[in-house]
Amino acid sequence: MTPVLALDNLSIAAGSKLLVSNLSFSLARGERLGLIGESGSGKSLTALAATGLLPAGLSPAGSAKLGGTEVIGTPNRALDRLRGTAVAIVFQEPLTALDPLMRIGKQVAEPLARRAKRDDAPLSGAALKQAVLALLAEVALPEPERIAQAYPHELSGGQRQRVAIAMALACKPDLLIADEPTTALDVTTQAEIWVCLTGWSASATWHCFLSATTCPLSPTPSARSWCSDRARP
């Protein structure tokens, strides 16, 4: 069975400086993996490289396969179809991860409608709205109707991160990458978010690849953990 994500000797360089060197691991269906390391050790870059979204100026080498499709060196246009089906990401900073000028309901509806369209079961109007509210309720947001009408700045940090998770889950991805999803939050909220994420990865056939600076609190969400060293200078 093809692994959901397979990295083989992945290296990321900025000019001549090596940021990530020869990283190899694979993630099978149903598996969870935690990537642990200090700031600047290349966790986020690995996540971005796996989706082909490295910022300009950084060059990847080696191989990263999403569900058997090579990502490194594949043009963006071809990857667009893969993104949001094979993979989705939850980002570190919940404030910048949401469009400040768009109501929450509309933001969540966006990936939801796209995924439904790809599945040849387009959602629109009332059905789409119901699906959005159901998804918001699923990530344990209180009063989904009110939250759907709100703008990001009207929510708390934890609520924003739940919305970001809802948006990633809306894609029904084969692989969910959570890039330090709790770093910007306080300890109590961190625990809640972990419960939210682990609940999901346990209940469904989700495949998580989590990265965190410190070992997560409470029930460790990862079945396996990898520690990354600071990249060699």
Binding site: L48, T51, L53, D80, R81, L82, R83, G84, T85, V87, A88, I89, F91, Q92, E93, T96, A97, L98, D99, E110, P111, R114, R118, A164, M167, A168, A170, C171
Partner: peptide
């Protein structure tokens, strides 16, 4: 450079 653009990209927006 905002995360929500990258998020939209990862979810497959053109």
């Amino acid at each position: 450079v905002m995360d929500y653009i990258t998020a939209a990209r990862t979810s497959g927006s053109s």
